[in-house]
Design a protein around this nucleic acid. Sequence first.
DNA 1: GATGAATGAGTTTTCATTCAT
DNA 2: TATGAATGAAAACTCATTCAT
Lengths: 161, 161, 161, 161
Amino acid sequence: MAKVASLANVSPATIYLYYENKQDLVNQLYIDVKSAYTDKAFEGLELSKPVKRSFETIWFNMAYFKINNPEEASFLSQCDNSPMIDAETKQAGLKLMQPLFDLWKRGQEEGIIKDISPYLLYAFTIYPMAFLINARHKNMCQLEDNVLEKAFQVAWDSIKV
Amino acid sequence: MAKVASLANVSPATIYLYYENKQDLVNQLYIDVKSAYTDKAFEGLELSKPVKRSFETIWFNMAYFKINNPEEASFLSQCDNSPMIDAETKQAGLKLMQPLFDLWKRGQEEGIIKDISPYLLYAFTIYPMAFLINARHKNMCQLEDNVLEKAFQVAWDSIKV
Amino acid sequence: MAKVASLANVSPATIYLYYENKQDLVNQLYIDVKSAYTDKAFEGLELSKPVKRSFETIWFNMAYFKINNPEEASFLSQCDNSPMIDAETKQAGLKLMQPLFDLWKRGQEEGIIKDISPYLLYAFTIYPMAFLINARHKNMCQLEDNVLEKAFQVAWDSIKV
Amino acid sequence: MAKVASLANVSPATIYLYYENKQDLVNQLYIDVKSAYTDKAFEGLELSKPVKRSFETIWFNMAYFKINNPEEASFLSQCDNSPMIDAETKQAGLKLMQPLFDLWKRGQEEGIIKDISPYLLYAFTIYPMAFLINARHKNMCQLEDNVLEKAFQVAWDSIKV
DNA sequence: GATGAATGAGTTTTCATTCAT
DNA sequence: TATGAATGAAAACTCATTCAT
């Protein structure tokens, strides 16, 4: 908290005017970052377009957000894989993904996407990005545009009927 | 460290006879758990069998390890998504996966598996399990055997040619 | 101070327009509550009545005040038994008891009350109430009217000649 | 806590090896001081002696303890009149007074002491001492031996049949 | 007169680490 | 090898007080 205060050029006590405690600060930050992420994700989404097209848009939006904002991406990935965020807040974070879940449902109704739980769809198409970004960040793998194209192909192959 | 010592029925000072400091303890623990995980993963692996068969064995071995050892799985997932483990140690952990990488290479040479970086293969077939186990742990999704079968199908579809 | 301000629907800064600092606020509050207490104590007092009669009136007035205003009673008792109030203010509080001291003096002149320091008289007849109210508050003892009558009897027996 | 640590010539952290937290420290201290007090109180008590004699012994023991240990006396009086000690611990403190309660019961069976609750007996004979010691400490009243004798007389008159 | 926002100087508590034995 | 006892340094948090508006 002292470091956060110092970065914000305020006294530690000031933080407590806006957040109940450290946990509350982290929770709210998580929601804020997740919102920025999903806002970007659904940017330029036209629901009149075919399901695959829309999914592609969302997928690349997410990928570019993570590539362009590695700190935010790393923060979200840490939060999602640890008990540092309480269940309630995580649930609220998931709700922000609703448009994607709706799209998948439409895809399933159209017989384009496998009829499986959204958790599975998420796990195999969106969640893998975190790993790739992480690896990229450590210079362990490149993510040029053609690799990204391939990655999307893999994601789509995994859930298309 | 005091809590670890207490759980081990040992004085805190004793820990420092075996580990240089906390970071060292965590690093070694990471390698130990990762070893237990990969040991299980490659159990019963017969390289004479076809690539898909072998991959299936490994995949289910991994899944069952995570389901049966949720604390270990959660620990590994936390480590892999945070800076708590240093890069060097993470690299050492990855090396333990070598047999899987070799198998994939063979699959690629046989024209069965997509010709993409092992990072992509890992990201889309193995990494997603962490999300599912996590979701399962929070009672957000079930992982009965038939769901597991479906999940494997998704994983395989993502990387098969 | 923030909590006090909030309960008063006022900004913390506003408190400092009326009180120099926290100590001053507590001091003034002490005098205010003590005044309310002694005001009640001497209510309906007719000095024409015999000493014992008047003392009885005062004693029961005090008892009922404490029973009906447990928060005020507890506050006074805390103040009187701690260094939180400065000596000067405590002295001022004692002065509010003057009518009782005068009554005792009269009783002593009439040879009805033991010829001892008013501190002793106070200690053995008034001060004990604090203990009883406290005990009552913790459901450790009842204080129905007949118990109160007995208590007064005890108090009177202690100082009557 | 820092001040306590400093007085004890230890680091603040050391306190937490012996006490869970500040509340626990205060609670244990309360019990310790109360024990020292009651130990003194019942010193030289011979139950073969008559009730009044025994009570006198206890009463003066208590008085001298408070006179000789004003800091301890003040601490106990602050604790007993404030919510700083939790109910459970206060109850434990009261149990240390058991021998006095037993004596009173005997006195009541012998028809020497008024047949009233021990809370009343305590409130009117023991509790007043706190006030006197306090007043003495502020040079508001003297407590020479003859005053003490008088005070005991008052106490005894209040509860004797 | 009133206040919203801020804070300096504290508070209690934690924790990785050490060292004499 | 093992440890009980200790701690320096820092953590999270609190609170009486101030001041520009």
